[in-house]
Write a protein that binds this DNA or RNA. Structure first.
Length: 416
DNA sequence: TCTGGGGTCCTAGGACCC
DNA sequence: TCTGGGGTCCTAGGACCC
């Protein structure tokens, strides 16, 4: 049996742990650049604030109802997530960390599953102050569905174990739930399924999997099997090596200036260099992209993929590609709104292939460890490429951010 | 005026191979 | 008249997830 444990309104709950005065008040957390609402407390949901709603469309509503509006504080959420995952790990046979606030657990061999799920809830709440819901089912898709029920029906007390439901009640619950709620059925698929007369979870469960595989893809067939209790999606305990690495960001305000764009791309080189080093990986090629506002008619997007002479994790090497990249993508007078870099080909140190002359397809920047040591000791970005300080107008807006309660000793909460 | 960022997987189609 | 069949690899693009 699988469990899906999911933090309730995760970002909001993290904020409330350190700001108890936010309890029982409507609270929302905004995305980068204070763009749109990415987390909402129940009170905020009740006001009709939708997931992903652009902030400018709800600003007035927030003022009217005294909604607490916060910029996102990912450092805090990542740290709270790490703590939550480590608690869950101790309460399961195997664990798959699925997202910042969700974890699949393999509960094979554990008896009294419902009680165990309640223990999970109680422990996470007591040890780190976060409320979670637990859904239990025979497959990952069913565990997800159970979790949805646990969240939707408060009388369940935050835990839903499908094995405890009679087949009649399970069928009833599936008939009452829209097909789009199923994990893996997004907006487009839900729309197409509805057009075929499949509009509830139950209708999907009882549909012909082979037929759907032909019309859509094998994925949809897998989901149908999973809804029927046949596992098709395995628990991924150890994440396979990452396929892709991205650093990108929208600008606080549109930019047209070449230097400003260079500064932004330099920043992304630093970010990626840091990520690569942390995971022991080396980039082979980088895709640089920059685009204007995608909500406007004159939207343009330019991208170029460049190969490094040898795979590298050093920001000094990555940064060298910025000039050729700019030559390929930069067009004057365009109002750029976002830029970034994608690495889609990575090597680990083990992949290094030595040729006959002893040179390697990996290039080690021997200065890098020293530079990193300086930055660790004297603070992030003490030493950096000069190109990164050519401009700053591109930086994000985060006007309403809370403190780094758990990761910066100067910002600890003081108990008096 | 204002609309996130970071991922994965699948498919279709072309190039190329024997 | 009639022009194979099976496979791999790559890329672009779309859909999905949180």
């Amino acid at each position: 049996m699988y469990a899906l444990v999911d933090g309730n309104n995760f970002f909001v709950s993290c904020e409330r742990v350190f700001q108890p005065q936010l309890e029982s008040r409507p609270v929302i957390v905004l995305s980068n650049n204070d763009g749109c609402a990415v987390a909402r407390s129940n009170e905020a949901k009740a006001l009709g604030i939708k997931m992903g709603a652009p902030f400018f469309t709800i600003k007035q509503l927030c003022q009217q109802h005294n909604v607490a509006v916060l910029s996102s504080n990912y450092t805090l959420y990542a740290d709270m997530s790490k703590r939550m995952m480590s608690i869950l790990k101790g309460l399961a046979v195997r664990q798959e960390v699925y997202s910042i606030d969700e974890s699949f657990l393999d509960l094979s061999g554990i008896s009294q599953l419902t009680q165990h799920a309640q223990l999970i809830r109680a422990r996470v709440k007591q040890w780190i102050g976060l409320p979670v819901c637990v859904g239990i089912g025979q497959t990952k898709v069913l565990a997800k569905f159970a979790n949805h029920l646990a969240k939707s029906y408060p009388f369940l007390g935050g835990v839903c174990n499908l094995a405890e439901l009679s087949s009649d009640r399970l069928a009833r619950a599936m008939q009452l739930t829209e097909v789009g709620e199923v994990w893996g059925i997004g907006r487009k698929l839900a729309q197409q399924l509805r057009a075929m007369g499949i509009s509830t979870v139950y209708a999907l469960k009882t549909a012909n999997a082979n037929q759907l595989a032909k019309v859509f893809s094998v994925n949809v067939a897998r989901i149908v099997h999973e809804l029927n209790g046949v596992p098709c999606i395995a628990l991924e305990e150890y994440s396979n090596t990452q396929q892709q690495m991205v650093s990108s960001r929208s600008f606080g305000e549109p930019i047209t200036n070449r230097d400003e764009l260079i500064a932004a791309l330099s920043f992304h080189c630093e970010q990626l260099s840091h990520k690569l080093t942390k995971q022991g990986l080396f980039a082979r090629s980088l895709t640089f992209f920059a685009h204007s506002n995608r909500f406007k008619d004159d939207y343009v997007c330019h991208a170029v993929t460049l190969l490094l002479p040898a795979a590298s994790n050093s920001f000094r090497m990555l940064t060298k590609l910025i000039t050729p990249a700019m030559d390929a993508i930069f067009v004057p007078k365009i109002n750029y709104k976002k830029a970034g870099i994608i690495i889609s080909e990575m090597l680990s140190a083990d992949d290094a292939i030595r040729d006959l002359l002893g040179s390697s397809n990996l290039s080690h920047d021997h200065l890098l460890p020293t530079l990193q040591a300086i930055n660790r000791r004297y603070g992030k970005r003490t030493v950096r490429m000069a190109s990164a300080i050519l401009g700053h107008r591109w930086q994000m807006q985060r006007e309403l951010m809370s403190a780094s309660f758990t990761t910066d000793s100067s910002q600890l909460i003081i108990a008096s």
